[in-house]
């Protein structure tokens, strides 16, 4: 079943600098889409459009549409704050809030009015278990999240997103600052999450895209150069530029 459809989508920042042009793609439920591409090619911009984080910026313009379960996310029917609960986001640098581990994970549910220690305890445990962090932190939930290692912090950010029980998870180069073991743990978590969520992951690591994604997309300077099944893209890319990129001949 189709979860997200991006149709003829274009986006420009203030002053008309075009970041995305005529993007067409769709993501099925319980599927992982891997987005690759060099810096400045509009990958983060697309993610920030998918949960309307771009709303806060002045002077932007867009074309085309993005639908979630068939409903246009930019239409008046969808409340942006509710959309962001349904479409969670994990940023490229882990951003733990200066609070305890527990309070970090409980932050989202509390925003949405979840009260009661028992309910929150459950959500915190659920989030931390799903992000494969529970065993490492269960005895020190009250300590500051800033004391965790970088890899743990990033999994905490994933846990914090999951505690809201979102439908879609957007990850923007979540492993860019992490060591290989932390990266592996995050990939492990992702493959388990797939059964429940729809995932879009931006990665600057083509091997990671090949490992974790079902579908892959290659962005270049705001253009979607190629999009298809990961296996196909990595074995028989249709576009010369994709071939160059994944075989490391880019630039």
């Amino acid at each position: 079943m189709e979860k997200i459809r991006v149709k003829g989508f274009g986006f420009a920042y203030q002053g008309g600098s075009v970041a995305l042009e005529n993007i067409n793609l769709s993501v099925m439920r319980n599927e992982i889409l891997g987005i690759m591409g060099p810096a400045q090619s509009g990958k983060s911009t697309l993610l920030r459009c998918l949960n309307r984080m771009v709303d806060a910026l002045p002077g932007t313009s867009r074309k085309g549409s993005i639908t979630l379960d068939g409903a246009d996310i930019f239409s008046g029917e969808i409340d942006p704050d509710d959309l962001r609960r349904r479409v969670g986001m994990v940023f490229d640098v882990p951003v733990p809030l200066p609070r305890s581990i527990y309070e970090n994970v409980a932050y989202g549910p509390k925003l949405h009015g979840v009260r009661g220690r028992k309910k929150l305890d459950e959500l915190v445990e659920f989030g931390l278990r799903s992000a494969i962090l529970w065993d490492e932190v269960k005895d020190r939930l009250g300590t500051s999240a800033l004391r965790l290692s970088g890899g743990q912090q990033q999994r905490l950010c994933i846990a914090r997103t999951l505690a809201l029980d979102p439908e879609v998870i957007l990850l923007d180069e979540p492993c860019s600052g992490l060591d290989p073991i932390s990266t592996l743990k995050i990939e492990e978590a992702l493959s388990e999450l797939k059964s429940k969520y729809t995932i879009i992951i931006v990665t600057n690591n083509t091997k990671q895209a090949a490992r974790v994604s079902d579908k892959a997309a290659y962005f270049l300077m705001g253009e979607l150069v190629e999009y298809g099944r990961t296996k196909q893209i990595f074995t028989v890319p249709r576009d010369r530029r994709t071939d160059d990129y994944i075989s490391g001949r880019f630039g």
Binding site: N51, D82, L83, R84, R85, V95, Y107, L111, L164
Partner: peptide
């Protein structure tokens, strides 16, 4: 980026101000 985190979790501007910005 702390404001972004709060917003991305569905926080309204006022929630973000009172729970992230003012404590910081």
């Amino acid at each position: 980026n702390r404001r972004d985190v709060s917003t991305s979790l569905g926080g309204t501007r006022w929630q973000t101000v009172t729970r992230v910005v003012l404590p910081g």
